[in-house]
């Protein structure tokens, strides 16, 4: 049996990769994938935690996260598609309308 802490380390690495991707990549789709990566890194951590503590709480939460992620994908992709339709670009820097 591997040391369960390795799962946690992997989750952390995946999360950092995702976070860096969100911050560094301009393509909205890639950034979006990176968000998914972060969510799944969390899921991995939850499941690992569940294994470590021997309870089911972590597993349950992982399911919740998946459901939320799915919902989020639906909304997020819709936004990206509509932005692409109007601007012919998927760069996040072009969509800075949130600025005051």
């Amino acid at each position: 049996m591997m040391n369960p802490e390795n799962y946690l380390i992997l989750a952390a690495i995946l999360f950092v990769i995702g976070a860096l991707g969100v911050m560094l990549r301009r393509n909205a789709l890639i950034a979006f994938l990176c968000v998914e990566l972060m969510l799944n890194a969390c899921n991995l951590a939850f499941v690992a935690g569940s294994h470590i503590t021997g309870t089911l709480d972590g597993q349950t939460t992982a399911f919740f996260v998946m459901v939320v992620a799915a919902a989020e994908v639906v909304v997020g992709l819709a936004i990206i598609v509509s932005i692409y339709k109007t601007r012919r670009s998927t760069s996040v820097d072009d969509a800075n309308l949130l600025k005051l």
């Binding site: 301009r26 996040v92 820097d93 800075n96």
Partner: peptide
Amino acid sequence: LRRLQTGYARSYALTMV
């Protein structure tokens, strides 16, 4: 303070991190 609001999603993400 207004300057902090750049409109770039990436900089918001950085702030969050």
